[in-house]
Design a protein around this nucleic acid. Structure first.
Length: 514
RNA sequence: GGUCCGUUCGUCUAGGGGUUAGGACUGCAGAUUUUCAUUCUGCCAACAGGGGUUCGAUUCCCCUACGGACUACCA
């Protein structure tokens, strides 16, 4: 019988989620929806030292903004609650115990100093791979080397201990990665990983396997940084007796820093000149504790649809020529096999391009709504119909919503200065006279559509013996102050006859007509 | 150092034993726009290197180089 597809995104609340994490969440979500399965979110907070207040809420808000919906999570519950590992703490020890009972794990009492000394000794002896393993464990203080009686005493006396996995000395561990194919690792390169820490918390490795099993996860989609520990996880499934329901693995390629090399990290933030976080993050400097702010895509004016579309294409493509995908189209087109193996770097230009595409595709009414709200902030009121006209006119010139408001300024502010280049070249007494005449007639014309205004202008200029090319730049500067901008006829039409005429007259009065 | 993963235009990528190696972003040029932007058209631009296998390799195999990840009682 086919099992229901269940995937999980399992972030650690140690700070803001960066876009690599968002992409991992996205691919999980796409696969779940594509296959009619469930998307879970589990908080992996087994390291109490790294807990960052607000991080969990940040994760929730980020996913919400992106439109990544969760079927089960700490916030909306589910059949396998709780979904925070810290709240699942009592569940893990029994599985570690099971491994000890079956001889696949053991107690270790080594102090951090003893561990350091061991590594130093191995390094000094030029051992290629210093680790706590099948060889070195014989020299350490653990339940394999200590007499049973002493182990019992230590445990009873409350001495700190960890539980380590007893990794076999010679064994090939293999698994079939959905993206990379067969990955084979020799057990000699895996060390005896700590499963239970001395504080009673499981490590990632144990908690991850136990929870994925209990939560009936079918596909583990995570970053490539987990690839080296995947064989360890396979071993864990095997020793716990869960190999037959072990999830399939898919290790995603890394997201690289746009500059230089290396994987994108949270620290890269504003150093790169563009956000690496979905939402703005208010944090603290690790050393000084001073407040820090890292910019977010949302606050920078990116539309979530554009952000998601861009992110989806960083490491995946549908194999067609289509570039623009809504979330539901992504779901339809997604398949894990089409995720690429090689890492991807950011392209700032492309995110911007995506944003422009999505911005322009928005209905004018929606853009007008934004425009109205943002101009209200500066005390400007306008009717909806006018906002829509402006939005339609300026959206081709905008990358971000904020550009709309900026471009719209000319409608609410008369020119304070006039472009000098144009004035020196195009402004003269004859032109000024013609424009004054045009302004006068404009006030009387019944047709203030862009075409109507153009017709009127042509007609006035004809009587003045001027060609349109001789005055249009001057007219633009008279009306807007600037040498460049949206179509002038539309500007004048939206401005209305009265306002346009007044602006022209103001320019004629102020500019010396040599 | 060790283990593992990777390598097609500047970037994201398609492709795959015989192709003019395709698209998108950027850049450049032209057209339209009396302007800037948009739009349209065109151009520049890639199979890391060396060995095999083969009639033929960018495609399959090996090696090298380069890049990356991991190498904690962090996830």
């Amino acid at each position: 019988m086919e099992r229901e597809v269940r995937v999980r995104f399992a972030p650690s609340p140690t700070g803001p989620l960066h876009i690599g994490g968002v992409r991992t969440a996205l691919y999980n979500y796409l696969l779940a929806r594509k296959l009619g399965g469930k998307m879970l979110l589990r908080i992996e907070d087994t390291d109490q030292n790294r807990f960052v207040p607000g991080a969990e809420d940040y994760i929730r808000q980020s996913l919400e903004w992106c439109g990544i919906e969760l079927d089960e999570s700490p916030w909306n519950g589910g059949p396998h609650a709780p979904y925070r590992q810290s709240e699942r703490k009592p569940m893990y020890l029994q599985y570690a115990q099971q491994l000890i009972d079956s001889g696949h794990a053991y107690y270790a009492f080594d102090t951090p100093e003893e561990l350091d000394a061991m590594r130093a000794r191995l390094t000094a002896a030029k051992v290629p791979n210093p680790q706590y393993n099948s060889i070195t464990r014989a020299q350490m203080r653990n339940s394999l080397t200590l007499p049973a009686e002493e182990v019992k005493q230590l445990l009873e006396s409350g001495a700190p201990y960890v539980i380590r996995l007893k990794v076999p000395r010679k064994e090939e561990v293999r698994f079939n990665d959905l993206i990379r194919g067969w990955v084979v690792v020799h057990s000699s390169s895996i060390d005896d990983k700590v499963l239970m820490k001395s504080d009673g918390m499981p490590t990632y490795h144990l908690a991850n396997i136990v929870d994925d099993h209990l939560m009936e996860i079918t596909h583990v989609i995570r970053g490539e940084e987990w690839l080296p520990s995947a064989p360890l996880h396979v071993l864990l499934y095997r020793y716990l007796g869960w190999e037959d329901t072990m999830p399939q693995f898919a290790h995603l390629p890394l997201l690289l820093k746009p500059d230089g090399t290396g994987k994108l990290s949270k620290r890269d933030g504003d150093r790169l000149g563009f956000p690496v976080f979905p939402l703005e993050w208010h944090g603290k400097d690790a050393e000084t504790g001073a407040p820090t702010v890292s910019s977010g895509y949302r606050e920078s004016g990116y539309l979530p649809e554009a952000f998601i579309n861009f992110l989806a294409f960083l490491g995946w493509n549908p194999g067609s020529q289509q570039e623009l995908f809504t979330m539901s189209e992504l779901i339809e087109a997604f398949s894990i096999e089409r995720v690429s193996k090689s890492p991807a770097r950011f392209d700032q230009n492309k995110v911007r391009w995506y944003n422009e595409q999505y911005l322009r595709a928005k209905p004018d009414a929606e853009l007008a709504q934004y425009l109205t709200e943002s101009l209200q902030g500066q005390g400007v009121e306008m009717p909806t119909s006018k906002a829509e006209q402006i939005a339609a006119l300026v959206k081709e010139r905008a990358t971000f919503p904020a550009d709309l408001a900026r471009e719209a300024q000319l409608f609410f502010q008369r020119p304070a200065t006039y472009d000098e280049q144009v004035i020196s070249k195009k402004w003269n007494a004859q032109v000024a006279g013609a424009l004054k005449e045009f302004a006068g007639q404009l006030r009387a014309t019944p047709d203030t559509s862009p075409d109507g205004i153009k017709a009127l202008l042509t007609q006035v200029l004809e009587t003045q013996g001027l060609k349109i090319g001789q005055v249009l730049q001057a007219l633009r500067v008279a009306v807007t102050g600037a040498a460049a901008g949206p179509d002038l006829m539309h500007i004048m039409s939206i401005l209305g006859a009265e306002e346009t005429a007044e602006r022209i007259n103001q320019a004629v009065a102020q500019l010396p007509a040599a």
